[in-house]
Amino acid sequence: MKGKEKCKALKEIRRQIAEKNDIPYVVSQCKYQGDCLGTCPKCEAELRYLERELAIRQGLGKAVAVAGISISVCASLTACASETENNAPDSGYEDISGNVDVAPYDSEDEVIPETNVGEPEGNVSDSLKESEQNSPENEKEPEIEGKVEGEEGIDETNEPLDTDNLTGDISYINIDPEN
């Protein structure tokens, strides 16, 4: 699944979560034309917003419905099943021993986040969890958990290895399959 397709599917998941829980959520259109990694600061901010709204509802003793969203339905609703996947023989699983991203992010693919993040509604209390700090209300370009300080763009969201922090933090681990 390509990044744009992932983005659409994840957006649909967020929309369904919001709908299930009566959370105001404006599905915004991404204006970026190229492919992306499936997420960007704006997408992350929307996710944090939903988390925060759900936490508020839980705090008020309201029932919260999160589970039960079908990823295949989300993919089909967004018409994002890629041609490759559709044509894959015996589709369902890719090669399982690969697909771990370690390659550096190509800055040419950087996503330009929209400036007018879909402004969510709702009250925000001071007692919210840490994700509140990333809310679209508070920041144009929210801080993403795990983001390396000083770096821009969305690469850190899909490039989770904190390579800047590696120095002095590498240990060799003896892996003996017989033990």
């Binding site: 997420t39 996947e85 697909n99 771990v100 989770p160």
Partner: peptide, 27 residues
């Protein structure tokens, strides 16, 4: 401890149901 060499977020239709994060460990 897990010797992690890569983490891939937002995998869909590849690791079973749902959205998953793949954690690649050495060995």
């Amino acid at each position: 401890t897990l010797p992690v060499f890569g983490i891939k977020r937002h995998r869909m239709t590849t690791d079973g149901t749902g959205v998953s994060t793949l954690v690649g460990a050495y060995g």
